[in-house]
Amino acid sequence: MARNAIGQYELSQIVPNGGDNDGAFRIDGARRLRHFDDGTAKTIIGRAVIAGLDDDYGSDFIWDSRGAYAWVHVGSFCYTYKNTPNSSAGDATWNNPGQEVECVDDPAHGLKCSFAGGILPDRWHASSRSHHPRGVNAAFGDGHVAFIRNEVDQITWWRLSDIAGGHTIDGDY
């Protein structure tokens, strides 16, 4: 069974215009409170993810590493904010058809995956996902948790996710 887990994301190289590519965590880089210019109460630092299935796909070489916190991949312990929660746009992580596949398109379990992940991380991204109806829970830097709707504006989602984008959050979420 898939289960809920908390994933914390790092930067996404691939957030287009409207969002700053600077999430709460990044690999090999420390963050201090003073870096959170947008305010910790307005910055998401952790979000729900759905853990992938590891042995239900009939092959030792096909499993889903999403939510595996000990696995150093985008989609495992680090999550990007490119796409809105539970987006129908699939995640893109390690996906090497014919060899190891670690991102399985499994919409029945809430796990959408794109074919485009390949084995190079420059285009990897993974959304926050949950089994809750209509949205996901997100933890903010000041410790509060809020429920974010699946239908949150993409731009609001980006602005909630970057730590120092300098934009006000003017949409509902």
Partner: peptide, 20 residues
């Protein structure tokens, strides 16, 4: 085989969507 993503532009409300 590929992926397509629809990303809302400024002034358009709501989520990003996509499909294989």
């Amino acid at each position: 085989k590929g992926s397509i993503t629809f990303i809302p532009q400024a002034g358009t409300q709501g989520p990003t969507a996509g499909a294989e």
